[in-house]
Structure formats: C-alpha cells, structure tokens
Amino acid sequence: MPRKALKPCKHPGCPNLTNGLYCAEHQFLHPDRPSAAKRGYGSRWQRLSKAYLRRHPLCVRCKAQGRFTASTVVDHIIPHRGDPHLMW
C-alpha cells in the first residue's frame, strides 16, 4: 500500500521532510497547542468579536496615541486565563 508523501518541516528555513508539521529536530520548539475552539474561541467568540469590531471600528491603542487606524482583531486587554468573567 502506498504511503503519504513527506512534507517539508514548517520551521522557517528547515529543509527536512516529515510526516507531521515539524521534523524531530524542531518538534520540541513547537509544542502541540489546542485548537482555537478548545481554548474558548468557538462560534460564540467569532460572532461577538465581529459585533465588537462593527461597534468599535478604530484600534483602541492607536486611538490613544492620536492615530486613527482600523481595528482588525479583538484582543483581551487583561489576559483571561480561563476566567469566564474576563473572557466575555
């Protein structure tokens, strides 16, 4: 039975071929990270972040410095670290 073709390692500049995302040399540099949905950024977060961007079209940090730049992402000012009160 044919095997899947090997792919280049995702680490910048690495020429090694691998079955996964990173070769054995770089695997330890890139630990497995849970998906965005598992970290709490599922469909509810997508919906609320889009609504927030519609209500707040300018970047808060840029605006504080007198620059007017369109906001493109929603970020927690205080890291929530799993606290639902800070998350939502």
Rank of each mutant, 00 (worst) to 15 (best):
residue 1 M to E: 08
residue 3 R to Q: 12
residue 3 R to T: 11
residue 3 R to G: 11
residue 4 K to G: 10
residue 4 K to C: 03
residue 6 L to V: 07
residue 6 L to F: 04
residue 7 K to A: 03
residue 7 K to I: 11
residue 10 K to M: 06
residue 10 K to L: 12
residue 11 H to M: 02
residue 12 P to R: 05
residue 14 C to M: 03
residue 14 C to A: 03
residue 16 N to I: 00
residue 18 T to M: 00
residue 19 N to G: 12
residue 20 G to F: 02
residue 20 G to K: 11
residue 20 G to A: 10
residue 22 Y to H: 13
residue 22 Y to A: 00
residue 23 C to N: 05
residue 23 C to K: 03
residue 23 C to T: 01
residue 23 C to D: 02
residue 23 C to V: 01
residue 24 A to G: 04
residue 25 E to N: 03
residue 25 E to L: 06
residue 26 H to L: 00
residue 28 F to R: 07
residue 28 F to P: 03
residue 30 H to A: 00
residue 30 H to P: 01
residue 30 H to R: 05
residue 32 D to V: 12
residue 33 R to C: 06
residue 34 P to I: 01
residue 35 S to H: 07
residue 36 A to Q: 13
residue 36 A to M: 13
residue 40 G to K: 11
residue 40 G to H: 09
residue 41 Y to P: 06
residue 43 S to I: 11
residue 43 S to R: 15
residue 46 Q to M: 05
residue 47 R to A: 10
residue 47 R to G: 01
residue 47 R to T: 09
residue 48 L to W: 08
residue 49 S to L: 02
residue 50 K to S: 03
residue 50 K to V: 00
residue 51 A to Y: 01
residue 51 A to Q: 12
residue 53 L to Y: 01
residue 54 R to P: 00
residue 56 H to I: 02
residue 56 H to D: 04
residue 60 V to A: 15
residue 62 C to Y: 08
residue 63 K to E: 14
residue 64 A to R: 14
residue 64 A to L: 12
residue 65 Q to W: 09
residue 66 G to P: 07
residue 68 F to A: 09
residue 68 F to N: 12
residue 68 F to G: 10
residue 68 F to H: 13
residue 69 T to S: 07
residue 69 T to A: 09
residue 69 T to P: 05
residue 70 A to N: 14
residue 71 S to V: 04
residue 72 T to C: 11
residue 72 T to N: 13
residue 73 V to R: 13
residue 73 V to F: 15
residue 74 V to Q: 05
residue 75 D to L: 12
residue 76 H to C: 04
residue 76 H to V: 05
residue 80 H to P: 04
residue 82 G to Y: 06
residue 83 D to F: 07
residue 83 D to I: 07
residue 84 P to T: 08
residue 84 P to Q: 06
residue 84 P to K: 10
residue 84 P to M: 07
